[in-house]
Design a protein around this nucleic acid. Sequence first.
DNA 1: GGTGCGAGTGAACGGTGTTCGCTAACGCCG
DNA 2: CGGCGTTAGCGAACACCGTTCACTCGCACC
Lengths: 249, 249
Amino acid sequence: MAELSAEPVSRRDRLRADTLREIKQAARQVLVAQGVDGLALRAVAREMGMTAPALYRYFDSREDLVENVVADLYDELVSVLEAARDAVVPAEPGPQLLAVSRAFRAWATTHHAEFGLLFGSPAESVGIATHGEGEGPAQQAARRFGQVFGTLVAQIYLDRGFPIPADDEIEPALQEQLTTWCDTLPVPLPLGVMHVFLSCWIRLYGMVCMEVFGHLRFALEDPQPMFEAELRDLAGLLGAAQEYRPPST
Amino acid sequence: MAELSAEPVSRRDRLRADTLREIKQAARQVLVAQGVDGLALRAVAREMGMTAPALYRYFDSREDLVENVVADLYDELVSVLEAARDAVVPAEPGPQLLAVSRAFRAWATTHHAEFGLLFGSPAESVGIATHGEGEGPAQQAARRFGQVFGTLVAQIYLDRGFPIPADDEIEPALQEQLTTWCDTLPVPLPLGVMHVFLSCWIRLYGMVCMEVFGHLRFALEDPQPMFEAELRDLAGLLGAAQEYRPPST
DNA sequence: GGTGCGAGTGAACGGTGTTCGCTAACGCCG
DNA sequence: CGGCGTTAGCGAACACCGTTCACTCGCACC
């Protein structure tokens, strides 16, 4: 009952896939234990009783490994967000977006190093490596991540709408870009929705980023209340002000 | 006429200060040329015809050097922002804030590596190094940087006011923190002003950060129009909607 | 059952941050 | 003016890094 189908999964391939998983898992452990810059090939290899050159059978370079770890982290984050979303009853997009946003902040604040890798400066991580050409696995995973928020906002808009700027209120240069972006979506939406979504995401990203990177300590010791205030404001923008509820915890 | 006063500036101290300046300048050149992770002690020393161990006469560690470079970069950024502010005629705080915000984005987009060092993940730069204890030179410089925006917002509020939330509309936990922050200011301001300022700064930071770190490429090719749209929105929040003007360039 | 392929190793190269012992020049004081 | 202490700077060294290369071993397949 194992491989009835014509899968070309030889025993070797299976072992290889296992080691590949184990490497990424070890890399992740090193990442959380030692931080981003402590993520050394030799450390990863040591973690799993191997030597550093052996890793080159599985990844082209440290950069390549990091990129795959990033992709895995995105996928894990997406799972966390989806779990938070699906735990909301009744399943209305407004409260779901609140839950997902809170889950995002919770993940970020409890996964410092990982968050820095995904959302910090890509100077020494990834992003421009496969620059210009086809997007690497990290970019694709990042896209899946964005879709969690995007589809919820789209759902809210389609369900009952919220105030959006008219097309001619948007600067032509921005209009054009939003249009080409909009054309990549399966469901056509007004440009104003994309605008509002971007603006909301910028605020959420800015808030969480500043907190995790410690750039909010000059004013706030515990940024959680400020985060909730921003969240309430964002809910208002999406016409869900009456749906805002204080955090359950 | 040189040192008539009782300054204890011996010739040695003067030379030392000069070399210290030269080191930081060289470090900056290496930073812009090689990026953040290329900022190696040996590279800095090579740049100025020295050897790496000699740098330890001036800095405790690479971390220490980077922290001082960060402080210098903050100061330079403050100078740029102040120049942009003072070039506005007539000197009204609304247009000045617009100019400063645009100058901030311009500096960020043209000084990638430096921006990442100042506003990116502090994992491998600075910030938690002097953690808990007295703030290092970088923190102080960051404070001066924030004041450029803060005083302009305060000026706008004192000049003609803008809508702010009442104290009892702010969650108690946030109220308390805003109060302790407010108490450090020379001029007492309503808590709502601090709230609005924080919210605006979060949006500005989020926008610029996402652009510089490339996290906006999934939607926009040229983030400038979106930045202007956000700016106009922020001007509206500060009751300066009618003062908004498209960028001069 | 031999053979080829691939996983894994150890050594090596050039690079890094950092420490230590040394030299040599400089400022200060007698 | 001469000796002395301080200090800037150097070279070697250590441990670590990413990466390459020659090599061995064991499994899979013909």
